[in-house]
Every structure is written in C-alpha cells, then in structure tokens.
Amino acid sequence: MASDLRLVEAVKATLGEEMARDESVVLYGEDVGVAGGVFRATDGLLDEFPNRVYDSPLGESGIVGAGVGLAAAGMRPVAEIQFQSFLYQGFAQLQQHASRLRSRSRGGFSCPITIRTPYGGGIHALEHHSESFESGFAHVPGLKVVIPSSPAEGKGLLAASIRDPDPVVFMEPTRLYRSLRESVPDDDHVIPLGEATVAEEGADVTVVAWGSMLQRTLSAVDDVDADVEVVNPRTIYPLDTDTITESVKKTGRCVVVHEAPETAGFGAEIVSRITETAFYHLEAPPERVTGYDVPVPMFAREDAYLPDEKRIAAGIRRAVET
C-alpha cells in the first residue's frame, strides 16, 4: 500500500514510524513540540510521544552538543535546526565532536545523531534562510550528508539516516515541502545511504542534480534536443561516484546542477571525480549550472539567482554542442 504525500508529510510520517519502531529515538529542536516545527513537519508528534519530543532553547550549538551526549549514551537523537543557515552556529559541535566521536574513542562510542534542516531557496524567505552549504558539511570527515529530491526519497532516506550509526545532516529542500506530491510506500521503506539513482535514462549527456534542482532539471530536458540521462546522487557524502562515472562513460558529456554558489560548490567535487575516473571518455568539458558567487538575494532577485529550466537547458546545450 502507498499514500499520496508531500515531502513535509512524508517527513512527519517517517519520524512517527521511527519513534514507534525504536524507543531510543528522541525528537527535539526549536518549536518542534507545541508548535509542530516551523514547517509543521513535527505537528502532532508531541501528543503521540509526550516523553520523547522536546522544545529546545534557541541555541543551535547547544542543540547539536546535546545530541552528541545523547548519542554517546545510547539514544538516537533527531534534532531539527529551523533553517540550514542557523546550523553554522552548531558547526563546531558537528566538526569537532559529532563527526569525531567514533575515531576519538577508537570505536568505543558511535554518534547516531540525525540533524534535520530545511535548506535552499525558492520560498522568498528572509536573509539567512535560503542557503545551500552541502559542500561545507561534506568536507567534514565522519559526517554524512543526505538530500532527498521527492517525498518517497524523503521517507526512505530519513529512515536510513535515523538508523545509521554515524552522524547525518539531513537537508530538506524547502521548495519541495508542499510543491510536489508522490506515492510513498506505507510500509517500511529504507533507501541505503551512498547509492545514487538514475532518474531518467539517456545516451547523449549526463546531468547530475539533487534537491529541488532535480525537478527543475527533469523539466528542462523536455526543451533540449538531446537524449539526456539524469543522475540523482541522493547522498552527497558518501558520494556514489561509480554510478555517476558509468553514466558519463556512456554519454561522454556531463552537466552538474546545484543552487549553491559555483566556487567550491559540490559540483566542483563531482567534476573533479569525473576527470579522474572518466577523463578519456569525455567528448566535451564538463559544465556547471549553479547559483552565483553572492549571498542568496532577497525576494526581488531570488528567482534570478536560482538555476531555472532556461539556464539548465542552456548548460545542457553547451555540453552537447561542444
């Protein structure tokens, strides 16, 4: 059986199912209890699990730090950070403690904490509410970075993240929370971390995209006179390099799409790996279609900042016509 859900509904359903399945799962964060979360992704869970859902103080460093202690004590904390940009305040706890607990203790402790956080633009939010820092989190050894691109992926990847023995930053595209409905399995649905998927098969060019950019890419390929293969990494770290490489070896061309700024964005890492593993198969230089090297602008310029179908289609044409 399956239900027709939006991403925010899939997240809420998965949290409830994982808490029912495992009593060590606890949920906490700013306004996740009484208010049900800033996007209502935790609405009703306080009533269902009154002793395992907690509203935290407004302090992201403390939220992440408390999770490290809970995880070391045998719990599986799931913390919500209201917007990804606020997680910068807890970055020291992620980089210096959560990601290192296993290595620091020589395997004596693990740190199964999941940090849920909305990210990305497209909803005309305020400053510090629309950034995409997946490449920064991926640079931290020991930290896994996961980004769903649909409601079904939201359920499968979140379940896998909560069950994972290591810390996970689970980044939920705000643009997709209520803009897309999809059939989501009602039963136990787990998507293994570190496995990409081919969202659309093709032979002329490979496009790698994730988060809300995947949906825009799938729309853009309809305007391109080429047979486009679209690869969705799903997990930024660990990255499934093999799936991407095999696709590029088949097509000979590659375009990477993401909404983070271009410089040192995760597209650069993907292009680097392609040149290392599939260089002699390339028939054209890899292309990147990204956000610009500026802070995400306010309402009037936000749409111009984000890659749209027109920019993505133009990048694909450049790769194909070179």
Results as ranks from 00 to 15, higher is better:
residue 41 A to K: 10
residue 79 A to Q: 03
residue 85 S to D: 15
residue 81 I to C: 09
residue 4 D to H: 13
residue 17 E to K: 07
residue 90 G to M: 01
residue 58 L to I: 15
residue 36 G to M: 02
residue 52 R to D: 05
residue 39 F to V: 09
residue 62 G to T: 06
residue 65 G to H: 08
residue 48 E to Y: 01
residue 70 L to P: 06
residue 79 A to S: 11
residue 66 A to I: 11
residue 17 E to D: 14
residue 57 P to I: 03
residue 77 P to S: 05
residue 25 V to F: 05
residue 15 L to S: 10
residue 36 G to Q: 05
residue 46 L to M: 11
residue 14 T to N: 09
residue 60 E to M: 05
residue 37 G to C: 06
residue 73 A to K: 07
residue 5 L to W: 02
residue 96 Q to K: 05
residue 42 T to Y: 04
residue 25 V to Y: 00
residue 66 A to S: 07
residue 14 T to C: 15
residue 38 V to M: 03
residue 43 D to L: 13
residue 45 L to N: 08
residue 62 G to Q: 10
residue 54 Y to A: 13
residue 84 Q to H: 12
residue 58 L to H: 11
residue 84 Q to F: 01
residue 29 G to N: 12
residue 22 D to V: 00
residue 15 L to D: 01
residue 56 S to V: 07
residue 31 D to M: 08
residue 2 A to S: 12
residue 71 A to Q: 14
residue 21 R to Y: 03
residue 84 Q to M: 08
residue 23 E to F: 03
residue 28 Y to K: 06
residue 72 A to G: 07
residue 34 V to Q: 06
residue 18 E to V: 07
residue 37 G to I: 02
residue 66 A to E: 02
residue 86 F to Q: 13
residue 4 D to Q: 05
residue 66 A to T: 15
residue 95 Q to C: 13
residue 6 R to G: 12
residue 57 P to S: 03
residue 8 V to L: 09
residue 39 F to S: 07
